[in-house]
Structures are given as C-alpha cells and as structure tokens.
C-alpha cells in the first residue's frame, strides 16, 4: 500500500523519534508512506471562528499535492493523506471537513490559489496512521512482533486531537480503544485509567508553563497510581509536555517520580525488534530503560 504522507514541521525537528520508527514499522506492515512534495505547515491549531477562511489556506494547499501525486502516478487512486502528528491530523481534518461541507468556502480558497495548477476538488481524506493499521487488522501487527512487550504495563494517552471534535475523532471520543488494542497486539498490558484523553495543557507550555506542569503531573500520577510503567502518545506536543516538562515538575515537586513517555511508533519498533538506532531513544527526556531490555 502506497500512501501520500504529510509529516509536519515538528517531526523534522524535535520529534524525529516519532517519524523514523513510524516509517519503519509502517514499512514492515506493507505501508509505504510517501512524503508529499512541497508540503507546508498546516497551521498547528485550527481556527474556529466563522470568518477566518483564509486561515484554512495553509492546510488546504497540501491537499493539492495529494491530487498531484495521483496525477503523476506516484500513488494510484489514493485519496487518503496519512499523518503521524495528532495536531497536524486534527487541523488538516477540520479544514478538510469545512471545505467538503461548504462548497462556497472551497471555491473562495481555490480562487485564492489561482496560481496553482490544479484546484482542490474536496476528495482528499485525512487519516492518521493508527486507524490505517487497525484496518489492516491487529493480526497483521501480531505477525511482525519479534519481542512481545512482556510484563510491561502501558498507559495509552490519546490527548485531545486524535479524539475531538467527534467528527474527526479516530475512535469513540469518551471510550477510545485503539491504542489499547495496539498494545495488546504488541503483547503488552494496558491499564484502565481516567486520564487518557485529558488535556496536557497544549501550547500553554510556551508562556504559562505552570499550567502544563500541573496538568502533566496529574496525568503521570494517575498513570502511576494505576500501575503503568510507560505512557504512549502520538502527539509531539503532548510528548514534550509529559516527557520534557518532567524536569519542571521535579523542580516544583521534588517528591515526584518520573515515568518514561514514548511515541506509539517507538513502542511498536521495540516490539518489532527494529534496530535500536532507528528508535530514537536518545530524543526522549526520561530514558525509557524498561523498553531496552525486557
């Protein structure tokens, strides 16, 4: 399966440990993710007011690249655009839904992009890699597992952007299961907890670090209380807030016990026994040693 792929800015900078193992595990599952030519930033956060149409220009422009890939025959009849970063997924999806629901808006955006060779026809479907894997079937994942995650208890952290609002959610907004299903396919144990879709504080990490410190501490404490060894996520911003900000949590709460936070792709990579160099462990702030030798 060849899929057009939108990486987004962060995967090329601070979150290479999400992308590199993801491309590798996808390959093992028979999914070739082909990076869009000339992709641009999605805008990170979606604009939610009614008169902000131009703010949707950036996400929509990327969809032209998908149409072009099809036209050039790089992919065959493939209208899905796959993403890894939760925020990119959410922002691209929301903009796409708006274009699909409002032909007038789409027309205006197309008019604005008149220098482009093609017009966006509304046909692209933004997807996240996780549901693509779910569609393949967990059995396919199980077949690739070389080192089952024996005795490792994993807290699935979805955050906000994979689940909400409902019409872009990859799973039930209040009772998601996809990460838990993935973990059991990898041979690991999951915990039952209440903080899996509780916000980590998002971009407040830039100028209101305290909010993030409090929220992240609450989430990690809850994971620990319910017996987790490691937290997994697909969002580079959640990963930063939950992982790197543990430094700040420890400064404020000296009794705080740290916990490793890894990307789902790293966890898959470990279970697939992918070469350690490709898993990017060094980019994790809290070293996930439990995943090195289990």
């Amino acid at each position: 399966m060849k899929l057009p792929y939108f990486p987004g800015c962060t995967l090329k900078t601070t979150a290479t440990n999400l992308e590199i193992p993801a491309l590798e595990v996808a390959k093992r599952l028979g999914i070739e993710m082909i990076e869009l030519d000339r992709w641009n930033c999605c805008g990170v956060v979606s604009y939610l007011v009614s008169d902000d149409l131009m703010k949707h220009l950036a996400p929509v422009r990327n969809f032209l690249r998908v149409q072009e890939m099809n036209a050039k025959g790089i992919v065959e009849n493939e209208n899905r655009l796959v993403t890894l970063c939760s925020m990119c997924y959410n922002t691209l999806s929301l903009s796409n839904k708006r274009m699909q629901k409002n032909p007038d808006d789409l027309q205006k955006i197309n008019d604005f992009m008149h220098r482009e060779e093609t017009k966006y026809d509304g046909s692209v479907e933004v997807v996240h890699l996780l549901p693509i894997i779910r569609e393949l079937g967990w059995e396919a994942v199980r077949k690739q597992v070389k080192k089952p995650l024996k005795n490792i208890k994993v807290a699935s952290y979805y955050g906000c952007m994979l689940l909400r609002p409902k019409d872009v959610g990859i799973d039930d907004a209040e009772d998601p299961k996809i990460l838990e299903e993935l973990v059991s396919a990898l041979g690991g144990e999951t915990i039952d907890w209440d903080s899996g879709s509780r916000c980590c504080g998002s971009y407040h990490t830039v100028n209101n670090k305290d909010i993030v410190v409090n929220l992240s501490k609450g989430i990690i404490d809850d994971a620990r209380k319910n017996g987790a060894d490691v937290i997994i996520t697909s969002c580079p911003l959640c990963a930063f807030n939950l992982d790197s900000r543990q430094k700040d949590i420890m400064e404020k709460y000296p009794e705080f016990e740290s916990m490793p936070v890894v990307f789902f792709s790293q966890l898959m990579g470990a279970a697939f026994d992918i070469e350690k160099e490709k898993l990017g462990w060094e980019a994790n702030y809290i070293s996930p040693e439990i995943l090195f030798n289990y």
């Binding site: 987004g8 800015c9 962060t10 900078t13 601070t14 979150a15 930033c41 805008g43 990170v44 956060v45 604009y47 970063c85 925020m87 998002s202 971009y203 407040h204 990490t205 830039v206 100028n207 580079p236 911003l237 930063f240 790197s244």
Partner: peptide, 14 residues
C-alpha cells in the same frame, strides 16, 4: 527545546 508546534500554536492563538 520547545517543539515548533508549541510555538506556532501559541502565536496563532495569542
């Protein structure tokens, strides 16, 4: 150390 999505997100919201 801040991921670019944090900075861009904050600036777009603020």
């Amino acid at each position: 150390i801040l991921p670019s999505i944090a900075i861009v997100g904050a600036f777009r919201k603020f």
